[in-house]
């Protein structure tokens, strides 16, 4: 019974995927070119524009080189295969293989996110431990928190004068607030008994911090990190687009500039996959520090 319960969602997942792919394929299918009702002149114009090409048997067909509308799953698959085949190639200044692009994005993301997390956790602990300080600083947090991280970008770019640094800082701004707020909350709402035990046992300030406060607030802090993680992942794509920094977000934009819609879809899929892999890695880490009550 257990095995069955475990197996069935996979069937549903696969089923939904197939439905989606078939639906996508059918929706993007174009009927074969039908020359009926078109004058010789019209056909010549279409051929001249490159919309249709003459086939060997004297008929016409749609020009496969000139794609109109949303590409179907097969052409996207074609693109995926090509791109993955060239994953480790650098063809030009702006034409790096997908593996490089993922690497750029992930490292940009990691630096910004980790720096923000460290700053946010340290600040959050101080704010959580000191109610008055928290109340004093809270108005600033409340104003800064809802600002889209991208809104900082012109100012950051102007100040640091370096797009790479700016994109890291955008990720930083995106991921600092949720962690800061939840860390302060988690530390502040830590059960009083734990602190009572710590003070009866005369634990030193440092021991109290890493034996009681940090592990006690860890589940809440991890929740904040998870929210930060998501918002940083969301911010990194437009940051790359706007700054022209090589990465998977940039890929989506440059494929749009190339009018390669299959490429855009491929970029979207890569962003999703990278996000999923990072997220599952994060969940594994989170599982190590959380506890059940």
């Amino acid at each position: 019974m257990n095995g069955r319960a475990k197996r069935s969602p996979w069937f549903i997942t696969a089923f939904l995927l197939i439905i989606f792919l078939v639906g996508w394929h059918v929706a993007t299918l174009r009927p074969a070119f039908n020359p009926q009702g078109k004058t010789e002149e019209e056909l010549l114009l279409l051929e001249f524009n490159g919309d249709i090409v003459a086939t060997d048997d004297g008929n016409y067909m749609w020009n496969p080189e000139k794609i109109k509308g949303v590409p179907g799953p097969l052409s996207v698959l074609d693109k995926v295969v090509t791109e993955l085949g060239e994953a480790f190639e650098k063809k030009g200044t702006n034409d790096h293989g997908i593996a490089y692009l993922v690497y750029y994005t992930v490292s940009r993301f990691a630096v910004g996110f980790l720096a923000a997390s460290v700053v946010a956790i340290v600040l959050g602990i101080f704010l959580g431990l000191n109610r008055m300080l928290f109340q004093a600083v809270n108005p600033f947090i409340q104003i800064l928190k809802p600002i889209s991280p991208l809104a900082w970008m012109p100012l950051l770019l102007y100040t640091v004068k370096d797009p790479t640094m700016t994109s890291v800082l955008v990720v930083f701004m995106a991921s600092i607030w949720p962690t800061l707020a939840t860390t302060a909350f988690g530390v502040n709402s830590l059960k009083k008994e734990y602190l009572h035990v710590a003070s009866i046992l005369q634990l030193s300030w440092f021991k109290r911090l890493y034996k009681v406060i940090l592990p006690g607030a860890a589940p809440t802090i991890v929740n904040g990190l998870r929210i930060s993680f998501g918002s940083a992942l969301v911010a990194v794509v437009p940051a790359e687009m706007l700054l022209g920094e090589l990465g998977v977000g940039y890929l989506s934009w440059i494929e749009w500039n190339n009018l390669d819609i299959s490429g855009v879809i491929f970029a979207i899929l890569v962003v999703g996959t990278v996000g999923m892999i990072l997220d599952s890695g994060f969940n594994k880490l989170a599982g190590l520090v959380t506890y059940q009550e």
């Binding site: 009572h196 035990v197 046992l201 592990p215 506890y291 059940q292």
Partner: peptide
């Protein structure tokens, strides 16, 4: 508060992230 007056709490106040052994050991070490 001090180690000379130890409290047994109504809701136990055990650290849920520590094992039974560690919960007692943290007190013994102090």
């Amino acid at each position: 508060p001090g180690l000379d007056r130890m409290v047994v709490f109504q809701n136990f106040a055990l650290m849920p992230w520590l094992s039974v052994f560690e919960n007692i050991a943290i007190a013994v070490r102090s």
